[in-house]
Amino acid sequence: MTRPAPEPVQVVKERRDNALRTLVGGIPYLRFLGIQFDRRGDELTAILPFDEKLIGNPFLPAIHGGVTSAFLEITAMMELSWSMLWEDMEKGALDPRALDPAHLPRLPKTIDFTVDYLRSGLPRDAYARARVNRSGRRYASVHVEAWQDNRSRLFAQATGHFLIPSRDRPA
């Protein structure tokens, strides 16, 4: 019995990084806020580098509550899209080389989003990670947490429900 040689690590990494870059790069609002994504295996960490235009209270100063909410929502949505893309990519059902901005999988739609503000966002970089708690054929529930200096001291968390785009037909 001969087993097929495992793919070289660089090939695997490049394929996954390209898929993530294409997914993230196609969304103007991510660029507007300056959000980046760090990938370790299938785990994504969203990074929001501090910028003057993100301020909501110039006297404290503190990050705008709407920015925090937007950061959490986009992280939740990207995690959900990425988990679906990852599955297809690893199964071989989707060739990431055929993935370009014009042929991206449709993004999930937010049904509702509830943000819990725990402390004010300091004028520093913020990080967020999301977890898909349930993803069915139509609906998904995603939880997301954001922190700044200490991973255990969250400054905000949120839960959202999303409508999963139909896989058979491009909506």
Partner: peptide, 24 residues
């Protein structure tokens, strides 16, 4: 504003931008 587009396939503004407006 095109810079606020959340879904490039439809040109619809990101939910996050709407929530920033509503929060304000």
């Amino acid at each position: 504003d095109e810079a606020l587009i959340g879904d490039p396939a439809t040109g619809v503004i990101a939910g996050g931008a709407v929530s920033a407006l509503m929060d304000t």
